[in-house]
Design a protein around this nucleic acid. Structure first.
Lengths: 201, 201
DNA sequence: GAATGATTTGACCAACTGGTCAAACCAAGG
DNA sequence: CCTTGGTTTGACCAGTTGGTCAAATCATTC
């Protein structure tokens, strides 16, 4: 049983499993993924997987908790004392980069939310809500101070999430429409223009 | 076998099945949905379902093809001869209303796309792409004519899709964050402001 | 009300899936 | 070497799932 002091083999295999699981879960959803798929993607046998993780649920859970933390860090870093426009634009671009660099993570999250977030509902209405309440207050103070134009702070955040993650979550659709053009060629410019025009007082 | 002239019973049951299937597929995804769930949601027995539809795939396919058509109609209606700003704002608001009134359809679509659109890839790169190519040309002509501000027309559409559908697809997350406030209270105003500021020349 | 065709269902099946387990294998230290 | 504890696996199991089928039931029409 993997315990306190993980061996080299444990570290390597756990990492391989989580990577394979991310591949499969993000592409098929929790129910669509099978332990066998994850096992062969990780180059291990099914019983061997279940030696490292007690269940399919456990793998999914491990991925989700790790994700929730990383996913929110750009918002956490929004600095109340920084330049408002620069802070928000920085947040937007960082989120867009995460969509480009970690599309699997974005899709794992999307799968979970679209299906009603059965496994992370608590985290949403606690951790996420608290963080958002906090940061929207900051944004509201910037608005009140006349530093940025007046918009509904919550909906501003929703729009940033949706717009940036859309490039990861709806990747197939975007590529089907764009043909050869790389989505991330025009995207940074577009979102930059959009939020500058929206927020310039 | 349901054939040329559908009886009253056939019409009623087919409709009940498709409605139940939409409920279940949109909430659980294709693989997550079971025929038994759909059957009991429709108030029928499993073999009875399979009397009306030859397979689970067939139900899903029927929903998707019907959806693809309805889903694109607002874009199809974008009138090249109308007032540019009014046409685009009308499109935005109509899409937002569809998110509010048909969230199940939006989520059915989202589930399919996030998982790589295995069953509608052809429709995306044919029907959708053609329509989008057509309408972006119209938008580009409005830009060239100076009627609206210059933006990447494709990314403009992507942003409208993502922003409006986000309210349906990520409903749980949005409600978890907003608490008691109804998302659709602030949304119309927000998207209106956003696109007016973006597009006003 | 008998005949005919549409509709409904209980019983069933084969494939798949998550998970178990005892036995085998292997790495490292003594 | 050989022991010890971590690692790996083939065989297996019980529950679920999509789908079938023959028989029963129902609605309509003549």
């Amino acid at each position: 049983m993997p315990a306190a002091r993980p061996t080299r083999i444990q570290q390597k295999n756990r990492a391989a499993i989580l990577d394979a699981a991310l591949d499969v879960f993000s592409a098929q959803g929790f129910r669509g993924a099978t332990v066998d798929q994850i096992a062969s993607a990780a180059g291990l046998s099914k019983p061997n997987l279940l030696y490292y993780f007690p269940s399919k649920e456990a793998m999914h859970g491990a991925l989700l908790t790790e994700l929730m933390d990383n996913w929110l860090s750009p918002l956490r870093d929004l600095n109340p004392d920084g330049d408002p426009m620069q802070e928000i634009m920085g947040y937007v671009h960082r989120k867009l980069q995460m969509s480009r660099d970690f599309p699997r993570e974005s899709r794992l999250f999307a799968n979970e939310i679209v299906q009603g977030a059965p496994r992370i509902h608590a985290a949403l209405s606690m951790d996420l809500k608290n963080l958002v309440d906090d940061k929207t207050a900051v944004i509201q103070s910037w608005i009140t101070a006349g530093k940025i134009a007046s918009v509904h702070p919550y909906h501003l955040l929703f729009s940033i999430w949706s717009l940036t993650q859309h490039y990861a979550d709806f990747d197939v659709q975007i590529r089907a429409v764009l043909g050869d053009e790389d989505p991330f060629e025009g995207a940074p410019d577009f979102v930059d223009t959009l939020y500058r025009r929206l927020l310039t007082p």
